[in-house]
Amino acid sequence: MQATLSTRTAPAGEVSPAAVMIRRMSGLFFVHAFLLAGAVFILLPFVWMLVTSIKPPEEVFSAELSFWPDRFYGLENYSFALTAAPVLRFALNGVIVCTGILVVQLLIAIPCAYALAKLQFPGRHLLFVLVLLALCIPIQVPALPIYMALAWLGLLNTYFSMMVPFFLSVFGIFLFRQFFRSFPDDIIHAARLDGMSEFEIVWRIVTPSAWPAIAAFSVFSIVAHWNDLYWPLIVISDINLAPPPLGMMYFADAETGSNYGALTAAATVLTAPLVVTFLFARRRFIEGITMTGVK
């Protein structure tokens, strides 16, 4: 065996094991170098936000480039952010608005989607076509007339005004309809034979089975409305009702504007809820947010 090995010449273009190893390692090196460079670009604002939020003003304002603060000033910055502006109130407003929107969206979209998927009724096709058309209309389009109506009704500066344009999620209807269509008809027939009303079928049979779609939709809805600036900016002028983005904008515009320690502390507080949830429920998050991409 050994003799055959040594007398045999390697076919042309063949490579030695060491060269293979070098090729593999250098490839890995470049891949990770590129990905890490990108990661630094992505992480830079997050890291700098956290670091600045615990820096005292004199270090923030010094022209010297230093990463870690010499003096821990986190308590002061965060307590200033929480007292100088109602930052926690902004977060609470965000929770109220997001919850309100999501609950109404689900209550309206689920029965409608079930009807579109499984029931015959007059106007079904028209409704579905309208839903498809509405899918490509962004909020900025009906904003003006809705604003006029709210102003006329004297409803500006209310939680209701912040939520009402989003009560109908055509995307939710579309998504749930696709999901319900694959729900077996036999189970629905069986439930009818067992004497269940359609109302019970929707909420006790079909909805529980659509749990993954509902979870993903919820993530999508919450992320969208927690971060939405355009609509609250229009209808809210009372700062106590401001959701996180509007509050953040107000906070940055106010005289605290150049107090970067407090500013980054506020940014941290308002960004943290979603980011932390994301870290814990990564799969659901990615699913929910990219659902818009696969609709």
Binding site: G38, A39, I42, L43, P45, F46, W48, M49, T52, V223, W226, N227, L229, P244, P245, L246, M248, M249, A252, Y260, L263, T264, A266, A267, L270, T271, L274, V275, F278, R282, F285, I286, I289
Partner: peptide
């Protein structure tokens, strides 16, 4: 890491970028 900006509040991060 790469998905982080998608979930974060753009307004807050814009303020940080400004800084």
């Amino acid at each position: 890491i790469y998905f982080l900006p998608v979930t974060s509040t753009l307004i807050a991060m814009a303020t940080v970028w400004q800084f």
